[in-house]
Design a protein around this nucleic acid. Structure first.
Lengths: 161, 161
DNA sequence: TATTGTTATACTCTATAACTATA
DNA sequence: TATAGTTATAGAGTATAACAATA
């Protein structure tokens, strides 16, 4: 081949204007970090949405499947399959809500709580690794900046992908 | 309904541990920003990947479809349809590479360059709006932090989703 | 009549396999 | 034999529609 081949290994050689955009960098950083986290969870037979549901149920509120669907922005039919999986793994229990027998009250089991903690540790580790190049002092600043950035968008912030 | 309903409008009321993670905030911020950008581009009949290809071709390198596939991490078959669309819109030209007639050399047309500029302005505007709550001085800091964060992952940074 | 959970179905997106023309 | 582009096809993931139980 006589043509120069762009090598993805050296994109810096390409004048690719996107990589100078804060927005682009923000998107890529978030994406890479979440991919790492998902990968770490897959090693535990779990995905991020699974982790999200565990985290939501830890709150102790009496959440139904559709409550969770709305909260995490997942389709109710998707939620059925997810809760099926979690129930099969013994991490979640379905109990009928006595005051509205159409609904379940979903509860974390002890195994579920344990799985949540273990997953949380894995995600913590991924975050630490990912942020390791950022000086300690800047990490707080970064978190604060991101929090401010999202402050006026709370309704959409808690949601899967 | 007698049970308390969690209202996504007030997630702060939920003790949702994820929203205190820098990694989670980073992911959500990047996602929301990119959704806004995609929305702005859809108003121009364009998507982000379309914008990415325009931006890559602006470099002036002699890129083939598969060069672009590798660079943007898009499947070659997906690239066919995308370039079909771009060619149909008159933004890209396919010319056979005379030194290897299997390949094309893809070129931006004047219309394509114009579309790139217009899209770039839209994305700029989205970024400015999104970052408007961050003090001017912190914006530079944020960009620098994100750049450092990605510095050792360049091979994976230039890529669609 | 409306809503929860559920199933079955359709749709979208992406990846796989096979083909052609070139090398 | 291998590669670029293409097409047709299969698969994963998601959304839509319809249903039973309950309100």
């Amino acid at each position: 081949m006589t043509q120069a081949m762009p090598t993805p290994a050296e994109p810096a050689g390409l004048d690719f204007p996107l990589i100078r955009r804060t927005g682009y960098l923000l998107h890529k950083a978030g994406l890479l970090l979440m991919e790492d986290a998902e990968q770490a969870l897959i090693a535990q037979g779990m995905r991020m949405r699974y982790f999200y549901v565990l985290a939501a149920l830890e709150s102790g509120l009496s959440l139904s499947q559709q409550d969770l669907s709305r909260l995490l922005n997942l389709d109710p039919t998707t939620m059925v399959a997810l809760i099926d999986e979690m129930e099969g793994a013994g991490h979640v229990e379905r109990r009928r809500n006595p005051s509205d027998r159409r609904r379940y009250i979903l509860r974390l089991t002890d195994d579920g709580r344990e799985a949540l903690e273990r997953a949380g540790r894995a995600v913590d580790q991924v975050e630490r690794d990912f942020l390791s190049t950022v000086p300690e002092a800047d990490r707080d600043r970064l978190r604060t900046l991101l929090g401010d950035l999202l402050a006026d968008r709370w309704p959409r912030v808690i949601a899967c992908e």
